[in-house]
Simulated assay, not measured.
Amino acid sequence: MVMLKTLGLVSIFAYFSLSAGEENRCSRYHYEEQILSKVVRLEHRLELLEDKVTNKTEISSQNPTCAQCPDMWIPFHGSCYRFVDEQLTYDNARSHCIVHEAHLVHVDTELENEFLSMYLRALKDASFWIGLADINTEGKFEWDGSSKAVSFDNWGPGQPDNAGGKEHCVHYYDQAKQNYKWNDHVCGRLFKSICEKRNSS
């Protein structure tokens, strides 16, 4: 706040300095009126800036999600996500997430799916493991470490197809022009992955 007020005083001084040359062309009264008007406008702008800073501080303290995710993790709706660049098998990707006290991502809603797709489009990478598989029972896809039913899906055309009877693990893939969809694939294939964990708030 002190910094903003100092900035305001510096700006006011600058206005006085820049306007000094007008004194010869304007009446003293008109000149002082102009300066007063500029000062009032600057004070008003300073008040608006102070309000914005105060509001941001209040919002941050009420909703500290951003501050609750570790470095390299991205916050979204109460969870933290990490896009793992190393190419791993499904099992190794799963273990990598567990080491970081997380799990391969569970995509529960369309909103969460759009958030993840947005990042994948920005990364411009093709394939990332998610925590969905039908390893235990063919055709019954379950989220890793959870018995909850799959409430949302984002399968690509004709998927899942269990090609060759060997595809049991699910990954995001770039279906066409960065339109990321799900596909079942051989679990031993090397892909990047997405880890997820709840934030600490």
Rank of each mutant, 00 (worst) to 15 (best):
C169D: 05
D174M: 03
H100E: 11
P157M: 13
G156K: 07
C187W: 05
T137R: 09
A163C: 08
S117V: 08
S193H: 02
C187E: 06
G145S: 07
R94Y: 06
F128S: 09
F141A: 04
W143Y: 00
S127R: 15
H171I: 06
Y180P: 03
E112Y: 10
L116T: 01
D91E: 13
H106I: 06
K140V: 13
C195E: 03
I130V: 15
Y180E: 03
K166N: 06
L123M: 12
K148W: 02
G145K: 15
E142R: 13
H100K: 14
Q175H: 14
E167D: 08
G164H: 11
G139Y: 05
K181Y: 07
N183F: 09
N92A: 13
R189C: 04
Q178E: 13
Y180S: 03
A93P: 06
T137F: 03
F128M: 07
H103N: 14
Q178L: 15
L123I: 09
V107A: 01
Q175F: 10
L132P: 08
V170F: 00
L190Y: 02
W129Y: 07
Y173S: 04
K166D: 05
Q178K: 12
V99T: 11
I135N: 05
W155H: 04
K166C: 02
M118V: 12
F141Y: 15
L190I: 02
A93L: 04
Y172I: 01
H100A: 14
K166L: 12
L111N: 10
G158W: 08
A93E: 04
G165R: 13
K166W: 08
D144C: 02
E112K: 15
W129R: 10
E138A: 10
Q159I: 08
G156I: 00
W155G: 02
G139L: 05
D91R: 15
L190K: 04
G158D: 05
G131F: 00
R94G: 03
V150D: 00
G145M: 10
F128R: 08
E110K: 15
P157T: 09
D161Y: 09
N179A: 02
D184Y: 05
P160H: 05
S95V: 11
P157V: 13
H185A: 12
H185S: 04
N92Y: 13
W129A: 05
T137Q: 05
V186M: 06
K177P: 04
F152Q: 09
V107E: 02
C97R: 03
L104Q: 11
S146E: 01
P160A: 09
V99N: 11
E167P: 01
E167I: 10
H106Q: 00
